[in-house]
């Protein structure tokens, strides 16, 4: 008989039972509503073992890849250890700073190496902890196929506690605690001929730089178009690297956008989201990645959906700036 482990207890799951039934029968209060795999209220995650595919139909591909499943539709065929979605304890590991490089006036690349093995999907984010407990999220711009380090692109906010500290005080060889990688904004092969639209502002390029190179390294052959925007040219970065990539990959296109009036040759005037929508007014069947300015992300998410993209195909990381301690 299959065993389900939850909150440290092992339960026997009968043949006819779902994980939800089993845990409910043992007195656990698991949120649920439709009991038919529709509402996704009962989402859980297998931290050990693999849930059956039926329990993952219609989940976002990136959630399925992380072993999330719907408890009400999960009749397990092998033992599982499960947690409620969102309740996972993310481990902390110590990382050493191995490199710091200026990417532009306001953005620095910080390269970390962890003592323990660190698994991540390019585009996910991790939380950085300072000694005094201050913590902020930063997206992962490196890809494990090419980079030995974990790279972050940190934009300095005037008066920002963590970003100023990372820029001005953190030095090479210093140590730092980071959480494991989380988030569902990353590349999954799925249909390698699907068209991908990537739109980011400022350091929102960080996850996209990871996602883009991951997609290319894994042989994605649909169109991939990246729109990177900033107020002025100095706010953009990796321009030469991105232009070089377009020369090596026919399916990759790059449009650097500048929203102020001073637009040099080779750059497109306007806001990245608006330029992208103008070029692609119909987004049926596209997969979309949006990162950076929260308002841009929210507006474009809605517009992309109204332009035909399926909600399941829209991945977004708003860089919400919380000024909590």
């Amino acid at each position: 008989m299959v065993k389900i482990t939850f909150e440290g207890e092992r339960y026997t799951c009968t043949d006819s039972e779902s994980v939800l039934d089993c845990l409910t029968r043992h007195g656990h209060d698991i949120p649920s509503s439709c009991h038919s795999g529709v509402c996704q209220t009962c989402m859980m995650r297998a931290v050990n073992g693999n849930p059956p595919a039926e329990a993952q139909t219609d989940l976002k591909a990136t959630l399925a890849a992380q072993n999330y499943f719907l408890a009400c539709s999960c009749k397990p065929k092998s033992d599982l250890e499960v947690v409620l979605a969102g309740s996972e304890v993310v481990q902390r590991v110590t990382a050493r700073i191995v490199d710091k490089q200026t990417l532009n006036q306001e953005i620095v690349k910080i390269s970390l190496r962890c003592q323990q093995p660190f698994t991540y999907q390019p585009g996910q984010f991790l939380n950085v902890f300072r000694r005094d407990g201050l913590s902020r999220s930063y997206s992962i711009a490196s890809i494990p196929q090419e980079n030995e380090t974990i790279d972050l692109h940190v934009r300095k906010l005037e008066g920002g506690q963590m970003s100023t500290w990372l820029h001005d005080e953190l030095a090479i060889d210093d140590e730092l605690d980071v959480s494991g990688a989380t988030g569902d904004c990353f590349y999954v092969p799925g249909d390698p001929s699907q068209n991908l639209l990537l739109v980011g502002t400022g350091s929102g390029l960080a996850p996209l730089w990871g996602i883009l190179r991951d997609a290319l390294a894994r042989g994605h052959h649909g169109t991939i178009h990246l729109f990177h925007g900033s107020h002025s040219v100095v706010g953009l970065y990796l321009i030469d690297e991105l232009r070089t990539l377009t020369q090596h990959h026919e399916n990759f296109h790059y449009t650097p956008c500048v929203s102020s009036d001073d637009v040099p040759e080779g750059f497109t005037p306007g806001r990245a989201d608006q330029v992208a929508l103008k070029q692609y007014p119909k987004l049926d069947g596209w997969r979309i990645y949006l990162c950076g300015h929260p308002e841009m992300v929210a507006v474009l998410k809605r517009r992309a959906f109204l332009s035909g993209a399926s909600l399941q195909d829209i991945y977004a990381d708003p860089f919400v700036i919380s000024s909590q301690k």
Binding site: C34, S36, V38, C39, Q40, T41
Partner: peptide, 18 residues
């Protein structure tokens, strides 16, 4: 919101709901 729309549709389609 999309999850709620699903709940709405399941309801309107006479499907299982509480």
């Amino acid at each position: 919101q999309a999850a709620k729309q699903k709940a709405f549709l399941t309801f309107a389609f006479g499907g299982p709901n509480n």
